[in-house]
Structure formats: structure tokens, C-alpha cells
């Protein structure tokens, strides 16, 4: 039970992000929620990589400890860079939307102005 705390932290991060995505109407808050979900996924991959008593998968001279798994680390690296790219694109589109509609409310954007 106590050993499952990292997974519970992952579930909490993803749930907080999902709450912001579903229930908030401000576009900036939705972007924050998406970023939280992404961080939860990154944390999940990192927790999958850890072995008990292991070191980072980098060879040094004269050490024979077991190493943590390298493939989830590499996938997390990919995921972080893609997250930065997607975040930049989302924020620039939000700036564009705000210049056009003068609001950040997701329910008002896209409707004809009455």
C-alpha cells in the first residue's frame, strides 16, 4: 500500500488536470489542465523506470550496481519536448483568439456576437 504512493500521485495529477479541462471555461486554465495531465503521464513513465536500489543508466568506472530501465527515460524525454512544442502552439493560438474575440471564455468564442 505504502509503495503505491507514486501511482496515487500520478492519478491525482491526472485528475486535477482533467477537472480543469472539463469544468473550467477560461482557455488559459484549460491549457494549465492539459499541462498537468502531461506532467502526470511523464511522472508515470518515470515511476515505471525505477528499480529498487538502482542508479541512473550511465556507465561509470568501477561500479556494478543495477541500473534503472533506460527506455522509459527516453520516452519521457521525447514526451517533454513534444509537450513544450504543443504548449507554445496552444498559447500562441490563445493569444490570437483573444485579439480576435476580446474574451477567453470558451463558451463565447466561436459564436456570433449578439
Amino acid at each position: 500500500m505504502i509503495y503505491n504512493i507514486p501511482y496515487i500521485a500520478v492519478a491525482a495529477l491526472i485528475l486535477i488536470g482533467l477537472y480543469a479541462v472539463i469544468f473550467k471555461r477560461n482557455l488559459i486554465k484549460i491549457v494549465i489542465g492539459i499541462t498537468l495531465i502531461e506532467n502526470g503521464v511523464n511522472l508515470f513513465l518515470i515511476t515505471l523506470a525505477f528499480r529498487e536500489g538502482s542508479i541512473a543508466p550511465i556507465y561509470r568506472e568501477g561500479q556494478n550496481q543495477i541500473m534503472s530501465l533506460p527506455v522509459p527515460h527516453a520516452l519521457t524525454l521525447t514526451s517533454i519536448v513534444i509537450g513544450v512544442a504543443v504548449l507554445a502552439l496552444m498559447l500562441s493560438l490563445i493569444i490570437h483568439l483573444y485579439r480576435h474575440y476580446n474574451t477567453l471564455d470558451a463558451h463565447k468564442i466561436g459564436r456570433e456576437q449578439e
Binding site: M1, Y3, N4, P6, Y7, A11, F50, R51, E52, S54
Partner: peptide
């Protein structure tokens, strides 16, 4: 699912 996972770091 978080409660059903294998223990953390136990490979």
C-alpha cells in the same frame, strides 16, 4: 488502477 499496480520499484 493505482492501487492495483505492482509495488513501486519492485522488479
Amino acid at each position: 488502477t493505482a492501487l492495483m499496480m505492482h509495488p513501486f520499484g519492485n522488479f
